[in-house]
């Protein structure tokens, strides 16, 4: 009989009470964001967006269109910012880089056998290096959820650390795929592992699994970031992704960030939305605030 060595756990478990989290979220959601603070927040949300296309059917043409939209959100409305980044598969990185040209918009690539993460380490490393070599500014990796749920935390930790190394100068976002982690305790533990292993951002979801980003999950991740900051002084970023389609929900996320981590996180260096249809809804709200008239999607470009 062989004796199995105890597993290496790089972080302490932090207890989370789900109902308490839900109640806090409900209370945050009662914040009423009106008038100038609403306009300010909507514009802020645009600057924080990772405009995303992650389809098997993605083509160079589709990616080019998205890149144009990223830099020209709604040209009839003067003074709008650009989004933070375009998020694509590694094979589309070169196209996106070229299409964006000098625009100050990053290119993020999903890697590590996205979205399942079920690939050998060598493939994951190659995947990452390929994207970086093609000019990716940011890498969105997925963790091995199967290993995590099996309790092999050191595997998860080591994998993140290896990908971080492969990223070089590119920023690393670690996707926890919280929809597969089952409990908020697990979300917290995965957040702590991802941060300890070197992630620059922690991200909720791939967008391919339901539920994707939720407010309770995001709150738990923000608390992990806060605790890490107070221990080390290092600011980790946060990216909820998937299922954020409406401005009202985006504002709720911003309220949560402000009241959990403070105003230093209210910028795209430390906070991103991973979304595809949110931009147009935010644009419609901005036009409505300006004109006082409710808008139709027919007047906003779909890319």
């Amino acid at each position: 009989m062989s004796y199995k060595l105890p597993k290496y756990i790089p972080v302490e478990r932090v207890e989370i009470d789900t109902i308490g989290v839900e109640e806090r979220v409900a209370r945050l959601n009662t914040r009423s964001i009106k008038k100038e603070s609403k306009v300010e927040a909507l514009k802020m949300a645009l600057t924080m967006m990772d405009l995303t296309t992650l389809e098997g059917k993605d083509s160079e043409g589709k990616v080019k269109q998205l890149c144009y939209k990223a830099a020209h959100l709604h040209d009839v409305f003067p003074g709008l910012p650009t989004v933070a980044a375009i998020c694509v598969y590694p094979t589309m990185v070169a196209t996106a880089k070229k299409a964006l040209g000098n625009a100050k918009i990053n290119v993020a690539a999903v890697s590590t056998a996205f979205p399942s993460g079920q690939g050998p380490m060598s493939v994951k490393l190659d995947d990452t290096k390929f994207a970086v070599d093609n000019g990716a500014d940011e890498i969105d990796m997925v963790i091995s959820r199967g290993k995590f749920l099996a309790g092999e935390y050191s595997f998860v930790f080591d994998e993140i650390a290896a990908i971080k190394e492969a990223c070089g100068k590119a920023h690393l976002k670690v996707i926890l795929e919280t929809g597969e982690l089952e409990t908020l305790d697990n979300v917290r533990l995965a957040s702590d592992i991802a941060i300890a292993a070197g992630g620059d951002f922690i991200k909720t979801s791939t967008g391919k699994v339901q539920p994707a980003a939720t407010l309770p999950v995001t709150l738990v991740m923000l608390e992990a970031i806060r605790d890490h900051y107070y221990k080390t002084g290092i600011k980790i970023g946060m990216k909820p992704a998937g299922g954020i389609a409406k401005s009202k929900l985006a504002l709720q996320y911003l309220v949560m960030v402000k009241e959990t981590l403070g105003i230093d996180w209210l910028n795209n260096e430390l906070f991103r939305f991973g979304a595809s249809s949110l931009a147009n809804d935010v644009l419609m709200q901005l036009v409505k605030e300006q004109t006082g008239v409710y808008q139709s999607l027919d007047y906003f470009s779909k890319d």
């Binding site: 009470d17 109902i19 308490g20 839900e22």
Partner: peptide, 10 residues
């Protein structure tokens, strides 16, 4: 009479 409350969740 003592009344005790506890959340139900996981």
């Amino acid at each position: 009479t003592k009344t005790t409350w506890h959340p139900v969740g996981y």
